[in-house]
């Protein structure tokens, strides 16, 4: 069984539908026992880092997530919360990944539109998550903050500057984009995650 962590952040339903489309049953829950016993855990999220972390801490979900031994996949805000610190609301996060999360630059020569909304590509794959994908595959992404590149980066995207499109450390995986909304490419990534032994 796949557990999708239920908390005060959006897109949970979309993740569950995406799993259904690839024939995988899942349960949306904040029950510690169910999450601990799940074969795999998905930590989704669209929302505000500070509000989300407060919610997780109040329910002890922060400690639970860090302690998980099975493969865990963070999505979007999930990735950001798995990092060390987020500039959004000056928030201390879970610290699973070493990277920090910062806002896209809003000044300078190249004016960026924020949030980044739409399809961009991922490259420099270094993980089983991207098995079978051709280089520069397109994924759907919506965010204003990003994790810088570091030693845990397993795929890169450029939005003027290169940032971590995905991170991996031990049993923890995370993607900044939305595999549940990224067409066939997203389905492949979800399947690859589900197939991790």
């Amino acid at each position: 069984m796949i557990a999708i962590i239920k908390y005060n952040a959006g897109n949970v339903q979309s993740v569950q539908y995406a799993l259904e489309r690839i024939g995988v049953a899942s349960v949306v829950t904040d029950d510690a026992m169910l999450i601990q016993r799940a074969d795999k855990v998905i930590f989704p999220g669209v929302g505000h880092a500070h509000a989300a972390m407060r919610y997780l801490r109040e329910r002890g979900l922060d400690k639970l997530i860090i302690s998980l031994q099975q493969p865990v996949l963070g999505i979007c805000l999930g990735l950001q919360l798995m990092c060390r610190h987020s500039e959004e609301g000056d928030t201390s996060c879970l610290g699973i990944f070493d990277e920090n999360v910062i806002l896209f630059p809003t000044s300078g020569k190249m004016k960026l539109k924020i949030p980044q909304i739409g399809w961009n590509n991922i490259y420099d794959y270094k993980s089983v998550l991207f098995n079978g994908l051709s280089e520069n595959a397109f994924v759907y992404t919506v965010h204003s903050y990003f994790a810088a590149e570091g030693k845990e980066t397993i795929a890169t995207t450029d939005y003027i500057l290169p940032y971590s499109a995905a991170l991996e450390k031990d049993n923890f995986y995370a993607v900044q984009f939305h595999p549940e909304k990224s067409g066939r490419v997203g389905e492949s990534i979800l399947k690859n995650f589900i197939n991790i032994p």
């Binding site: 990277e99 920090n100 910062i102 630059p105 300078g108 570091g150």
Partner: peptide, 12 residues
């Protein structure tokens, strides 16, 4: 890693 805004500027 401690990438702050200064580093972002360089990358940019």
């Amino acid at each position: 890693m401690n990438d702050g805004p200064a580093n972002t500027e360089t990358l940019l």
